[in-house]
């Protein structure tokens, strides 16, 4: 997939260094993905992904300490990172 708005991941990683490795891994995970539909995304990331609207997804990453919201355009193969927000493990469970 083409990931745009990845500067939000970089900015969050700079502000929260402990989250940097996890966010680099997420960036690679999204770029390596070849999702053509919601069910494929759910198959690969169902344990952390939650659809909040037709094309908006929230990835909860409690071990990284943040949640990443993005939109997906399956037809174009584009992921648009919207926001990275801090969470803690209690929020995620």
């Amino acid at each position: 997939m083409i990931v745009i708005g990845a500067s939000a991941l970089a900015a969050y990683g700079e502000a929260h260094p402990q989250a940097g490795p996890g966010l680099r891994a997420l960036n690679a995970l999204l770029r390596q993905a070849t999702w053509r539909a919601r069910n494929e995304l759910a198959r690969d990331c169902g344990a952390v992904a939650r659809f909040v609207s037709e094309d908006a997804v929230a990835f909860a990453l409690p071990q990284v300490g943040c949640s990443v919201a993005f939109r997906v355009n399956f037809e174009l193969g584009v992921i648009r990172i919207i926001a990275v927000t801090t969470i803690n493990e209690e929020d995620a469970t």
Partner: peptide, 15 residues
């Protein structure tokens, strides 16, 4: 590029 083990851990967590 991510560290391979961090990547594997995240991929396992996601799945």
């Amino acid at each position: 590029s991510p560290d391979p083990i961090t990547y594997l851990t995240l991929a396992m967590q996601a799945k």
